[in-house]
Computed example of a mutant assay.
Amino acid sequence: MSNLYTLPGHLIRRLQQIAVSLFAARMSEAGLDLTPVQYAAMVTVQDNPDIDQATLAGLIAYDRVTIGGVVDRLVAKDLIRREISPRDRRARVLSLTDEGVRVIERAIPWVDRVQADIIEGLTDDERQTFSSLLVKLTETGNQRSRAPLKDLRQN
């Protein structure tokens, strides 16, 4: 008999599925058409104006090829603007449009609800422990990822 349902990898994959489903449901309730990675990209662009796509990919731990499609969709939705960099004519920089700012403002309370939804079965102490362990595991395994997080705060 397999212990599939107790394997950490299987449980993490299941929790990811649940988290994405909860995110989609909350965004639908809010009347917003956003995926978790689109939200992460927009918030990161907001926090880092005139960021280039490669840096954005590193800051949200996404591979460079896939982030291009994410940015393309956000540009098509008029949520992000992509312009030629004033410092390097070969590079493109990203910034939020006014609509992008409005969408983030609308999304924030819904994203907060998703976070609460994900951990609703835990006590306050368990939530703190769970969050601490998630941070520890993701930081420890970061360099093993095909798209490691590149945290600018560590520079």
Rank of each mutant, 00 (worst) to 15 (best):
H10V: 13
L11H: 01
R13F: 08
L15R: 12
Q16N: 12
A19E: 12
V20I: 12
V20G: 02
L22F: 09
S28I: 04
E29T: 11
G31E: 09
L32Q: 11
D33F: 08
T35V: 06
Q38P: 07
V43C: 01
V45G: 02
N48G: 01
I51K: 00
T55M: 08
A57I: 03
Y62N: 08
D63E: 06
R64I: 01
T66R: 14
V70P: 07
V71P: 07
D72C: 06
D72I: 04
L74I: 08
L74H: 08
V75K: 11
V75P: 11
I80P: 06
I80C: 06
E83Y: 08
P86M: 09
D88L: 04
R89Y: 05
A91G: 00
R92A: 07
R92W: 03
L94W: 01
L94E: 01
L96R: 03
I104M: 07
I104L: 14
E105N: 10
W110E: 13
V111E: 05
V111H: 05
D117M: 05
I118G: 07
E120V: 09
G121P: 00
T123K: 08
T123M: 10
D124C: 05
E126L: 15
R127M: 11
F130V: 11
S132K: 12
V135D: 11
V135N: 10
K136S: 15
N142K: 00
R144C: 02
R153A: 14
N155I: 13
